[in-house]
Structures are given as C-alpha cells and as structure tokens.
Design a protein around this nucleic acid. Structure first.
Length: 420
RNA sequence: GGAGGGGUGGCAGAGCGGUCGAAUGCGGCGGUCUCGAAAACCGUUUCGGGCUUUAGGGUCCGACGGGGGUUCAAAUCCCCCCUCCUCCGCCA
C-alpha cells in the first residue's frame, strides 16, 4: 500500500511514478474519494465532540442529583444525526482504501523502463555447457532415472502435478541441507512456517487483492495455501513494532508452495517446470529504510553463490517496471541455462518491497521521531523443482545418467544418478 | 470434538456503566545527589487519525483481542468471531 499522505502531498510525483508502471487511472479517484471522506470526517468528529461535552455534563448532573432530561434529549438528537454521517464516512473511506490497496508500489528510479520483454541483463556467469550429443530435457532424464512420474500424478491429482522419486528425492534432500547450512551462515534463521494462512496475511503481502486468482482457497475454512513462504515469513512482522537495533532480521523459510497457475494454461506444460506444488527455500529480510537496497544486493549475492556452487550457468536480469509484482519496487531474477530448452529460465527472484508490504502488515520500528515502517525483501534461495531441472540438464551424460556437484555429495547425494 | 477460565499500555496487574486513555509496580528515558557509579528522590513514558500551524506545536476524534448491539454515556452489560490457558476425548 502506498502512503496516503504522500499521495496528498505530492500527487504529481506519484502520478509520474505510476505512469512508469502503466497505471494512473485509480490515482485521481483515490484522491477524490479521500477528499470527500475527509470532508465527512471533519463533520462527524465535530458532532462527536459536541455530544461528548453534553454526555460529560449529564454525568456531572447525575452526580449532583440535578435533572438532565433536556441534556439527554439533546445528546440523543446528536447521536441520531451521526448515524447517517458515520455510514457515509465508512463507505467513502472503504471505497478509497479499496482503490488505494490496488495501487502498486513505486519503482526504484534505477529499475528499467518497459514491460515483460524489457528486462536488462546485468551479467552472465559461467559458460554454456556443451554436449557432444543431443542433450535431453529434464523429463526424459527424470524418466530414465526413475525419478519423475507425472502420468500417475495426473490420475490422482490432475495436470501439473508430479511424483518426485528415488534419486531425485536424494538430490532434493541434499539441496535443502546445503542451502540451509549456507543460509544460516549468512545470518538467515531457518523457519518451517505455516503454509495455510488467513486472508490478512495474503492482503498484508500484497497477493490479495491483485493475485487472488493464483491462490488456492480452502472450501470449508477461511484459509489459503501459500504460493511461497514469503507470506508466512512476512507474517512474523504482522502488527508488530520490531526492535530497531535488531534489524536486519533475516529468515529462511522452508516450505511447500501451491499455485493455481490460472492464466498459464498451455504454457510450460512439459515436465516439472511449472507445477501446482513444489518445495522452496525462501529468504526474507526485515530491514530499515536506509539499508534495504544494500540488503537487496546481499540477497542477490546469496542466490548467485548458490547457483555458482551448483555449477550452473546463469544470468541476472533486472526486471522492468511493467513486469514487477504489485509489492516490488525493484526485482532481480536469476535465470539458469536449461540445455533441454536451449535457453535461460527463471530459477530465482528477489524483490525489494520497500515499505509497501510493511504498511499493509503494520510492521514498524520505533524511532526518536515516532514509529516508522520497515522495509521488507524476499528472494528465492532454492526452488527445488527448477533447480533440479537445471542440475539434471546441465550435468547430464549421453546415456541419461547425471553427475552430481561436489557440494551436494557432501550433503548426502550420490556422486552420480544412475539409470533405473 | 466436549467442559470451564482468561485476553487491559514495553512487561506484570487493578478497574467491572459517567470524574478512566486507564491505578499501582517493574522496565525505559531525563534530572537531583556523587570524583564516578549504585541506592534514594523528582519528572517523564501507548498508538492511529482529522483540523490547524511563522514547524515547535496547538486542538479535537478514535482505540482496553476483532466486529456488532443496548445506553445520553461502555474497558465495564448483551451477541458473534478470533485467540490463549486448564481438564476430558481423539491423534502423528
């Protein structure tokens, strides 16, 4: 959520900023609704003040045993007059807030202009793996290894589900162990969070109302399956005033993630690249306003460290403003080379949400000048499914067997994955 | 799932229709005292919002888990929800 006071004080600046992201329609309506809401609020509050004065007088009269019927009549009249005004106030403020909630965050000035196709490549790391045979894609390899069964998953759960089996489970466990060790060494406290959350958490992180269609909802309970542990990790700061001295607070969430993939019909239908359920380790930081850009780069650094240690060829993309999620002010994606697709595909993503989520979550620190919203940041450490794809395809051999990076062997993975 | 008891400021804890944004204690901050410190003593100490302001403030409204209701008036009475605790049942 944007700062309403900023909208009032510098509407032109906000308009220019929102123009970069392609949407200014609601801004003027928010300002107009706000003006109208405050108009009523001023009236309502002065009537309430008047009634309060009379009510106090009644109390005094009662104590002395004096008659107060006239005062009571006057107070009742004021109260009756308030009913309609208060309803109007609620209505106008609700209308204003609903639109305000839908406005996206202001982008960092450095974020590239444009949309989906306008991401700027920051750097390319490693070299493209070369094969003296036609490289297979991860599904072929997975089948040869006996590590993936999607046909049977389709029968019991539907499209975009998979059984991960045998050697790939070993690989996942090693990946998780490796990542948790590295993250803890970088100051991130490991967390296994709730994956079912209330709608407040979804609003607080900005997934509602914008991305409601991508979230699974339970039919019989008012709970939602998280699409990322970013949601419950952000929830650690919900309605809280944090200790400023303890920032940045860093957490690494380990969870299964659930996504409906509505609107992605027909896209990436092969294999486990885009599925409804996957496991992910996610970094999340609560930072102060001054430190968030540095924290963002720090998170990106950890992501690159992981990809490098896994022996993957990747590039870093600076995402253009038009392609940012509602909460993000700046976003970097790491795209790993996937030989089976012969191109770079997203494996991690990290966003600086500045104070946008914090304002919705009401997560603050106390300063000499009062309370201030923190900044929140999130970034993928390991998205298991997509990382497996990159690993299998990058380290494959002609017969379909796969060599395993040394770091993962240290965490219990076999030196190579043999054909089933 | 059943029965009962709680949710009040950073924490503990009183208040149970009006003078209560809230006693008291602890903690925090400022000061007195001291060479310095401790102790003692004095003062101060919630958050959100409207209006206003020569920018330090002034003024008013709202908030006692959340929402609704009764009343001239609700922390206090009634209803619903959330949540914590105790006991019973069930369970990895």
């Amino acid at each position: 959520m944007l700062d309403l006071r900023l909208l009032r004080a510098e509407p032109e600046r906000v308009r220019t900023e929102l123009m970069r992201r392609g949407s200014t329609d609601d801004l003027d309506r928010v300002l107009e609704l706000d003006r109208r809401a405050r108009e009523v609020r001023t009236r309502v509050e002065s009537v309430r003040a008047e009634r309060g004065r009379i009510t106090k007088e009644i109390g005094q009269a009662k104590r002395v045993g004096r008659d107060s019927d006239d005062l009571q009549t006057a107070a009742r009249a004021l109260g009756d007059a308030l009913v309609a005004e208060e309803a109007a106030l609620r209505e106008r403020e609700a209308a204003r807030d609903e639109l305000l909630l839908g406005l996206p965050n202001l982008a960092e000035p450095e974020a590239p202009a444009g949309g989906e196709d306008d991401a700027v490549t920051v750097r390319v790391v490693g070299t493209q793996p070369l094969f003296d045979f036609a490289p297979k894609d991860h599904l072929e390899i997975g089948l040869l290894l006996g590590g993936i069964d999607m046909e049977q998953a389709a029968k019991i759960s539907g499209a975009r589900f998979a059984y991960l089996m045998g050697p790939l489970v070993r690989l996942q466990i090693a990946l998780v162990g490796f990542a948790v060790d590295l993250l803890e060494a970088r100051g991130f406290t490991p967390v296994v969070p709730p994956v079912l959350v209330r709608e407040e958490a979804m609003f607080g992180t900005g997934f509602f109302p914008t991305d409601r269609a991508s979230i699974y909802a339970l039919a019989d309970d008012d709970l939602y399956l998280v699409g990322t542990s970013e949601v419950p990790l952000a929830g650690l700061g919900y309605e809280k005033i944090l200790d400023a001295d303890q920032l940045p607070l860093r957490y690494a969430g380990i969870s299964t993630c659930f996504r409906r993939e509505a609107g992605a019909a027909g896209r990436d239908t092969r294999g486990i690249f885009r599925v409804h359920q996957f496991d992910k380790i996610e970094m999340f930081s609560f930072s102060d306003a001054d430190g968030s850009s540095a924290e963002h780069l720090r998170i990106l650094g950890v992501q690159e460290e992981i990809l490098t240690q896994l022996g993957l060829h990747y590039r870093v993309q600076d995402i253009a403003v038009g392609d940012l999620g509602a909460s993000a002010a700046r976003k970097f994606d790491c795209e790993a080379w996937m030989p089976g697709q012969d191109r770079f595909r997203e494996v991690t993503s990290c966003s600086n949400c500045t104070d946008y989520q914090a304002r919705r979550l009401n997560c603050r620190i106390r300063t000499d000048a009062g309370t201030r919203f923190v900044h929140t940041l999130n970034g993928t450490a390991v998205a298991v499914g997509r990382t497996l794809i990159a690993l299998l395809e990058t380290h494959q051999r002609a017969d379909g067997s796969v060599s395993v990076p040394e770091v993962l062997q240290r965490y219990g993975a076999p030196a190579e994955l043999e054909l089933a």
